[in-house]
Design a protein around this nucleic acid. Structure first.
Lengths: 107, 107
DNA sequence: GTATATTGCTACTTATTTCGTAGCGAATTG
DNA sequence: CAATTCGCTACGAAATAAGTAGCAATATAC
């Protein structure tokens, strides 16, 4: 499973359009969640795993590599943390929380 | 595969917190892409399939049902289209395009 | 009004992804 | 130096997605 990056073909699309790479990357299970959990600060492998409902370590490890390839997270002395890019992504996804609560009310 | 909805347990989380349901739903392959393709207007089953890189009809059908359950899309005389909720979701995801292009530049 | 094409699917098989569990080697703590 | 914690790998089982064929219903063409 290769890491979807802009300017190169991604799963299901050969256009290389950046937004398609985003959909491919974030559409893989756990990726959005992992970034979300790291919003509030760095976490170790095992803490992150616990916070992501004990997702399997093999998948977590795989995801960490993908997200690192995509320059959205990086390792630090205190654990994995968002890069600047990862942070700005989370900021653009931030309004999702508000949307989710509207959604919740309407259902 | 059940449809993740707020206020009920979703894959990997039993909290019922709305944002987790969003991650579960949007984290499934094609869901974000399908909504994105419908941004600009209604599409028939087969057109949608073509625009989603000829995804398999079985999965498309499955996703349509999920997204309809989640009240994000509905059928109309001219094909499938976003509901009001679906539209507001796409609006909140709109800044992703801008982020994606920054991402592209930095890689 | 009958042949042709298109549309929305379903069925089924195969491939890929994800899960779940066990556990190892390195670093840290007592 | 024993015990724990940590990051991670291996690997079989389960779930999900892909790929292909095709059918029934409606629309279009002649």
């Amino acid at each position: 499973m290769n890491t979807p990056l802009p300017n190169q073909p991604v799963r299901g699309s050969h256009s290389g359009v950046a937004i398609m790479a985003v959909f491919d990357l974030l559409g893989r299970k756990w990726n959005m969640r992992i970034l979300w959990e790291l919003r509030t600060g760095p976490q170790t492998f095992r803490t992150l795993q616990e916070n992501c409902d004990n997702m399997s370590p093999s998948v977590l490890n795989n995801r960490i590599k993908q997200l690192a390839d995509a320059r959205l997270l990086a390792t630090s002395p205190t654990g994995y943390q968002l890069t600047e890019l990862g942070n700005t992504l989370m900021t653009t996804l931030d309004p999702l929380r508000a949307w989710a609560s509207v959604w919740e009310k309407q259902l």
